[in-house]
Design a protein around this nucleic acid. Structure first.
Lengths: 352, 352
DNA sequence: CGCGCACTGGTAAAGGTTTACCACGAGCGC
DNA sequence: GCGCTCGTGGTAAACCTTTACCAGTGCGCG
């Protein structure tokens, strides 16, 4: 109930009648107009076999005049492939996932493959539906960021049996698929040793604010952190800004005066920072804060946020390789599993 | 060249052999197994006509045992509709568009319609391709945020002739379609009067940092601003964080000491804020800053950002209404055009 | 007892493509 | 001059559904 500023002045209006829809033209229409058979039309349009130049011209002219464009459903049905891949993300409002989506799209832009993005809205049932709909439409590949380490497995397995499937960033380990992600344990270890250096100079309590370990990323990051600092306080929630803000807010209200706050995502860290400022405290004076992921949004933080950055460019390039390989190669039937090491970036939010 | 921290320690690996792909089962397989005809199977699976309970059970059992799921290409080809809509956004890294995409997806989640998102990567050719691919796959509707007020028109027109088409947020005015957007002139007027109040108390130069007026949003916002403050300096670029930062950085380097900085997007304002801090200046002490859009990311700003907020929830609801109406109603052939009024939110980045 | 109707099942067409296969003509080698 | 091949075009099948249409059965009613 946030959009309640009902605006009586909203302009509404109806414009004139719609132009009547053009009747969809098929390959038969083009063939008739060019005076050839549909096979010839198909051959010209796909360059699939040589066609006498004169016919070729006539077909192209006819197609152009009729504004013909192929029905991709018919083509996909016949060919058994759709020249497209699906990307299922848990959430588009998380800038890290949005960046991944953007990058995957860009990476495939130069190929003949369309990338369609489906947001699962952090909901298992929606995720299942997204995967099923992509499979039903016979995508040639599926890139999945599974919502849940365990409960996403059935859907992921379904996908993996039908098409080349790549799990990205998060892994449902019970399903064998390709996996491209980041070495979360290494990344969190980097953070941990940085934090150790920080508290050595200036001792203060260490707090972890992060997502529940229901996704593999959260799981691995939390795990590594907890092993490094067994005594630290853990506050768990979800991968979003408001959780970070609320959690930190509560900690401050409870009397946390000074601390090193480790988070497992930049968005959470940004929430933490907002809460700190809202309470009139300062970073790094009162609290030191670290993030995780290192996508663009990190630069928005004030002060600049210490984080580990995932090499998103390399990751998406690896995805393209796998999909390409599955298409033409097809021969090698091994799963690619790559965990890229993120790199620590120390900034003013946690001076060493 | 930012990912050069080549990580020699990246883990790579190949896992065991892939499980062999299940042969795709069709409605014929189910029919054979259940001992009925394919028509009966279709009827059971779609509840399209009553079927004797005994047969019904057999079909359901067979479908279950074979793990059958319908080929949506065949269905769409036959039915002429695909139970899906396409959403073409210029860019997923802009949080405003990501929020729109997320909200549109969510709004359709409860219906039987799948929403597929395609990022045009701020590129006209990619946008054209996105629209063509959606049309070729016979989506039932198209929601477009056109990249360019003028040059996107041909693609938008193509769409509008084939399926129900809604332009969102940005308008290519030469094409008649439905339009859901925000009253940019009203919003910028709100900002302008706020700015007037600000400079009345504390006079300082006014600067506008915004996108080139190639999209209707940028056009309308800039236009309104320029009419309100004809003498103001205008710095134009693109709708992203780094433009805002670089533009502000340069202004500061040029000697701009104190100013009110009006932007036409929150992302740009965030960039401006980052530049201010990077130069050791303060907000609102040295510079006052305003944004536009008012999506979540606004809350990340430090200090909190004055902005106008678009009622995204109302906008996406309006989209659902149009699509629904086009489906069953079909009768009314008028275009819906609604511009929602954004609401001014004054925060500490520009105290009145 | 016969007719018609309600109920349900099957057959086949249609939707738009690609492509295997065949046919036809020309050119060429022997 | 004959047969073979190459080049090119067309026909029709196949991809997987949905659904119009027909047929058969059983029942009720006149």
């Amino acid at each position: 109930m946030d959009d309640t500023e009902r605006s009586p002045g909203d302009q509404e209006g109806l414009q004139s009648q719609r132009e009547d829809a053009a009747p969809t033209t098929t390959i038969h229409d083009v063939a008739a107009r060019a005076g050839v058979s549909i096979a010839t039309v198909s051959r010209v349009l796909n360059d699939s076999r040589p066609v006498r130049p004169e016919h070729r011209m006539r077909v192209l002219a006819a197609a152009d005049e009729l504004g013909y464009s192929a029905n991709l459903l018919g083509r996909a049905l016949r060919q058994g492939r759709s020249h497209s891949i699906g990307l299922v993300v848990p959430d588009l409002e998380n800038p890290f996932f949005a960046t991944l989506a953007q990058d995957v799209s860009r990476a495939f832009a130069s190929s003949q493959i369309d990338v369609y993005v489906y947001s699962a809205d952090n909901d298992l049932e929606t995720e299942r539906r997204a995967i099923a709909s992509f499979l039903g439409r016979r995508v040639d590949g599926l890139v999945l960021i599974p919502c849940d380490e365990v409960r996403s497995a059935p859907s992921v397995r379904l996908a993996s049996r039908a098409v080349v499937t790549i799990q990205l960033d998060r892994l449902a380990p019970s399903v064998r698929t390709h996996f491209i992600g980041c070495d979360n344990r290494y990344g969190m270890a980097q953070i941990a040793s940085h934090v150790r250096a920080v508290v050595e100079v200036d001792p203060r309590p260490i707090v972890f604010i992060g997502a529940h370990p229901t996704s593999s990323s959260a799981h691995e990051r939390l795990d590594t952190f907890a092993k490094a600092f067994p005594a630290a306080r853990l506050v768990l929630g979800s991968f979003d800004f408001s959780f970070g803000r609320d959690a930190m807010s509560q900690l401050i209200d409870e009397g946390l005066k000074a601390a090193v706050v480790v988070t497992d995502a930049d968005v959470i860290a940004l929430g933490v920072i907002a809460a700190v400022h809202a309470h009139g405290r300062a970073i790094p004076r009162d609290y030191r804060v670290t993030g995780f992921d290192g996508v663009g949004v990190t630069f928005l933080a004030q002060p600049p946020l210490t984080t580990v950055r995932q090499p998103v460019g390399q990751m998406t390039a690896a995805i393209v390789d796998i999909v390409r390989g599955a298409f033409d190669g097809g021969g090698t039937r091994d799963y690619v599993v790559r965990r890229f090491r993120p790199s620590l970036i120390v900034r003013e939010s946690s001076p060493a």
